[in-house]
Design a protein around this nucleic acid. Structure first.
Length: 491
RNA sequence: GCCCCCAUGGUCUAGCGGUUAGGACACGGCCCUUUCAAGGCCAUAACAGGAGUUCGAGUCUCCUUGGGGGCACCA
């Protein structure tokens, strides 16, 4: 495949979410695979909807995911500026060209009049499109009204008969009756272009070869084709991606749904995912497979493998419900691929956040015994917090294992003290065989005896493996805790 | 309401005229086991419905149904 030029064109109006991330990923993959360029363009033509910090969040999210771009507002490039609000004059010029050629016209209708028109159309069950009132104004008259400072917009003059056909790479020909398409506004009364014009102009000027975007653009795609054709430009290849549905498969994720998700430790927002303890490599792998597949069995892909395997023709056009169980599965598996040192470094921030004094050295020792128990990085707090928190105050009734009397419980602890006392340190290799034979001698099951020791030594019913944990806690603390448990039982 | 798109188990999907319809997650059972996990094995589960084309249809066509998206001086 020839090198492509693709753009990821988010508008800075909210959080970067999974759907956008997937679009950016596919852009990135096909650009890297073909040796082309991945361009970041900020679509901020609607200044009213701008959200403080949203543009930065886009950069941060893409960086976190490891999707680096070749051209963009921050890194520049030969076809800039890459922020649409800085391209106002360019759109103005091209809009005028369309007016000149008779493909667009000035419209002086007020927003109030338009909204009346629409309600009337709805009541009469007609297509809700502009009624064409200003189409009939001669260009000369329109120009003098504009010159006189009359408030106006520029509309595309969509043909009122016939149909327009364009081609979507995944779906083939898409035909729409022209009368169903509106005389869309190209330039607002404030002089700034709207999406339809701005995107077309930029895609052409920036030499975009493939437009990969969400399928919510499908109904207006024929319009976009027409705009390109009106200028006499060659159209890019259009690729409309399926949408993501909420986990139930019933509809698109709403703000409310998104908020609910965080309560279960999930989220569709990239920024949130990082805080929840997900790995960027897991996010990429998971999201890549929602709407794309390689074959009937391969499902683990590094970013590099994705670049090598990805092709546009294996994209799936049908909507996909987001499956967080599968995401957890991927995340857990990617955690297991981390070395001890890597895992320690990745979980460190979560301990810091909790105010737990976890050092990298200790975390590296802990890594192998908690790794396969983690679904997300922040599970490490539940799993290994005990190594850094003050030991809790226990009560005697917490100590006995299943079907154990206080005497049997005390015996286990006493024998542990006896066994551990002469040892220089509590290495698993030394402690475990000793204690196993003690368990036999005392006529207990391992489950009973080790359960008692687990509570006595970790203060918890559930913990990482007992002997490995003791090794990390250290002999001194262990002996103190055993003595304390013993006196608790004899009290 | 109008327009566009989509349709294989609960979910993500493989399949591109002839398959015992494959894989994964989730779920259930068993094994392993010092808790929790992880791992191993096994099981349950799908071509939305109806016409057509064809010797033969999950695969092609049409209709129905269902789902999704779009109908702004938002993107």
């Amino acid at each position: 495949m020839d090198p492509v030029r693709v753009r990821f064109a988010p508008s800075p109006t909210g959080h970067l979410h999974l759907g956008s991330a997937r679009t950016a990923l596919y852009d990135y993959l096909i650009a890297r695979k073909t040796g082309g360029q991945f361009i970041l363009r900020i679509e901020d033509t609607d200044q009213k909807r701008l959200v403080e910090g949203a543009e930065q969040e886009i950069y941060d999210g893409l960086h976190w995911l490891g999707l680096d771009w070749d051209e963009g507002p921050d890194v520049g490039g030969p076809y800039g500026p890459y922020r649409q609000s800085e391209r106002k004059e360019i759109y103005q010029k091209y809009a005028l060209e369309l007016v000149e050629k008779g493909y667009a016209y000035y419209c002086f209708c007020s927003p109030e009049r338009l909204s009346e028109m629409r309600t009337g159309q709805q009541q009469r069950k007609e297509p809700v499109v502009y009624d064409g009132t200003c189409r009939n104004i001669s260009l000369d008259e329109a120009r003098s009204r504009v010159a006189a400072g009359e408030k106006h917009v520029i509309r595309f003059k969509t043909p009122r008969t016939g149909a327009t056909t364009m081609t979507d790479l995944l779906r083939g020909a898409i035909t729409v009756e022209n009368r169903m398409l509106d005389d869309y506004i190209l330039v607002k009364s404030d002089g700034l272009a709207l999406y339809h014009l701005a995107a077309a102009v930029d895609d052409h000027l920036m030499k975009i070869t493939h437009v990969i975007r969400s399928s919510e653009w499908l109904p207006t795609a024929p319009l976009h084709s027409m705009i390109h054709r009106s200028f006499g430009w060659q159209e890019p290849v259009w690729v409309h991606l399926s949408v993501f549905l909420k986990p139930s498969g019933k509809g698109k994720m709403s703000k409310r749904d998104a908020a609910e998700l965080v309560k279960d430790g999930h989220s569709i927002f990239i920024k949130e995912l990082e805080n929840l303890g997900y790995l960027p490599e897991a996010v990429l792998n998971w999201v890549a497979l929602m709407g794309w597949s390689f074959d009937d069995h391969t499902e683990f892909f590094t970013k590099q493998a994705l670049i090598e395997s990805f092709t546009l023709d294996r994209l799936n056009p049908s909507p996909a419900a987001i499956n967080f169980q599968k995401f957890d599965y991927f995340n857990a598996n990617y955690i297991r691929m981390l070395t001890d040192a890597e895992l320690a470094e990745r979980i460190k921030p979560f301990f810091d956040r909790e105010g737990l004094p976890a050092d990298l050295f200790t975390l590296t020792r802990i890594a192998p015994i908690i790794r396969e128990r983690l679904t997300t990085l922040d599970d490490a707090i539940d799993m290994a917090g005990l190594f850094f928190r003050p030991f809790p105050q226990l009560t005697a009734d917490q100590l006995p294992g299943k079907d154990m009397t206080p005497e049997m419980t005390a015996n286990v602890i006493r024998s542990a003290i006896e066994v551990f006392e002469p040892l220089p340190s509590l290495d698993k290799d030394a402690t475990e065989p000793f204690m196993r034979s003690e368990v036999d001698r005392l006529g207990l099951t391992p489950g009973q005896a080790f359960g008692t020791l687990r509570v006595a030594v970790t203060g918890q019913k559930v913990s990482p493996p007992l002997f490995e944990s003791m090794e990390i806690i250290g002999k001194q603390a262990i002996m103190e805790r055993l003595q304390a448990a013993l006196s608790l039982l004899s009290a």
